[in-house]
Design a binder for these strands. Structure first.
Length: 345
DNA sequence: CATGATGATTATTG
DNA sequence: CAATAATCATCATG
């Protein structure tokens, strides 16, 4: 056994004193003619080391010969172990892979947008949630909703088909590589562990491709969302009746044009708009009225007259068209006197 | 097409 | 959080 280290060293393969080798060398061949075995090992190693120098046909034949050699399993295991150790020492540290926070973010977002979730229900649920979150307008923008939903569905379908494609390609490639490695493991020192690692590497690669897909899908959803919000921003003027109702309330409560929440709800129902739209309207109206009272004077008089007519028609009193008292129209509010140039404070 | 009206959004404030 | 003020984006009109 004293010749072995030298032999190994001379071939540049550092397997000196390897327990596995010693083990294997004792197996089956112990005792009989040790010199012959050592010679065998030397031959095998020599052949392995020089196999790349030969022509393809020669190498093929040599490989076959080596495969059939009785020392082959032992040597194979030894080489596998050595390789395993080397590989592990090279990149044992970076083996661990914490879940990528960015990937998690993408996943969460896709899930939230209903892209990554269940096929049918998720999308519409997300769209409904988005609609509710952005102010829950009634049925008048259902066209936009369906448009949004259709586009989201489209994105989702593309995403899923692409993902499936990747998945399939990944599986195909993995099995292909595994077969290849298994095939090669007859001639090369490839252990099952290594195949496993290879599969892991492939999966990581493919998941990074998937991440790109997720990224671009997220971008598409973001763009769609912003478009949707922009579309929501696209306004339609309230119809005449709604404007009249709102103006009526405003000018009847000119001294305190701040409808309570219930009053807003009432107005919203009457005008078939949302409460937030009522709030918007009153906010705009107050500031614009205050900014230029003169401009609104005519309008103010008109609505004042109208409410006066309403009031007088109820009270059967005919001569108050120009200085009407303000009836409380919708909500049972205190009815202050109408003052044309009253300031909003 | 320029312009004012108007609904919605955003930043600020109390 | 609601009101305000400024601003944006679109509508409507001459």
């Amino acid at each position: 056994m004293d010749e072995q280290p030298r032999l190994m060293h001379s071939h540049g393969v550092g397997m000196a004193g390897h327990p596995g080798l010693a083990q294997h060398m004792q197996d089956g061949t112990a005792g009989t003619d040790g010199e012959g075995r050592k010679q065998d090992i030397g031959d095998i190693l020599q052949q392995i080391m020089t196999i790349t120098d030969q022509s393809l046909d020669e190498a093929q034949a040599r490989k076959h010969a080596l495969n059939c050699h009785r020392m082959k399993p032992a040597l194979f295991n030894v080489l596998c172990e050595i390789k395993e150790k080397t590989v592990l020492s090279i990149r044992g540290a970076q083996e661990e892979e914490p879940p990528d926070p960015q990937l998690m973010r993408l996943d969460n977002m896709l899930l939230a947008e209903g892209v990554a979730g269940p096929e049918k229900g998720g999308g519409s649920a997300a769209a409904a949630a988005a609609a509710a979150a952005t102010g829950g307008v009634g049925a008048d923008n259902s066209a936009e909703h369906s448009d949004y939903r259709a586009k989201l569905t489209q994105i989702r379908q593309i995403y899923h088909t692409e993902l499936e494609k990747y998945e399939q390609a990944c599986n195909e490639f993995t099995t292909h590589v595994m077969n290849l490695l298994r095939e090669q493991s007859r001639t090369r020192p490839i252990s099952p562990k290594e195949i496993e690692r290879m599969v892991g590497i492939i999966h990581r690669k493919f998941s990074s491709i998937q991440m790109q897909l997720k990224q671009s899908t997220c971008e598409a959803v973001m763009i769609l969302r912003s478009r949707f919000l922009d579309a929501r921003r696209k306004r339609r003027n309230f119809n005449k009746q709604a404007t009249e109702i709102l103006n009526e309330y405003f000018y009847s409560h000119l001294s305190n044009p701040y409808p309570s929440e219930e009053a807003k709800e009432e107005l919203a129902k009457k005008c078939s708009i949302t409460v937030s739209q009522v709030s918007n309207w009153f906010g705009n109206k107050r500031i614009r009225y205050k900014k230029n009272i003169g401009k609104f004077q005519e309008e103010a008089n008109m609505y004042a007259a109208r409410t006066a007519v309403n009031a007088t028609s109820v009270s059967a009193h005919g001569s108050q068209a120009n200085s009407p008292s303000t009836p409380n129209s919708a909500g049972g509010y205190p009815s202050p006197c109408y003052q044309p140039d009253r300031r909003i404070q």
